[in-house]
Design a protein around this nucleic acid. Sequence first.
DNA 1: ATGAGGATTCCA
DNA 2: GGAATCCTCATC
Length: 204
Amino acid sequence: MQTFEKLRIDFYNREDVVLIAKELIGKILVSRFDGIETNGRIVETEAYAGVNDRASHAWNGRRTARTETMYGEGGTTYVYLCYGLHQMFNVVTNQKDTPHAILIRALEPIIGIDVMLQRTGKSKVDYTLTRGPGNVAKALGIFTHHSTLSLLSDELFIAKDDFQLSPSDIEATKRIGVDYAGNDAHLPYRFILRNNPYVSRQKK
DNA sequence: ATGAGGATTCCA
DNA sequence: GGAATCCTCATC
């Protein structure tokens, strides 16, 4: 019998955001806005490790209206606008006052592909449908007004199923687009499902 | 009040 | 390689 189980608060509340980012590979991200379900398997994530991580919006304790949700409880969302047009969907982890977050960078779409096509304005299904963080949010209908939402809700959550993967199926690399972060730009905080065609390409 | 820049994407 | 596009945040 196929299992499909929503992840609970104790998955998100843990201290090691890098481990959680790794464990999110293979899980299923589900949105059910207005009763319309879309979902996909997570194949690429990036950990942002809070106040000591130069690449994080919370680096050095930076705390603003936009990033406030990262300082809240784990198991919530942080969604922000990038370049004025792309919604970036993040999972907030750890406890209150520890601003850890994980950017979901790519999915392998499973349910609701026709809806994803409508939302993204694409005319045909290809690997770019849910490749890259901007496309992930667009395909699942996630916008900045969904920031601070609980991932224990029925509208937006992450689930595990029977999907099996071995440790060697997951590869760690440096994060994308964080060259401004000095030495922290080289940290192996990006995780991908090896050889999955939906994974975005590492820039050189 | 102002302006620089961004955890990106798409097209030429 | 370059534009799109606009909010956020540090600084003035």
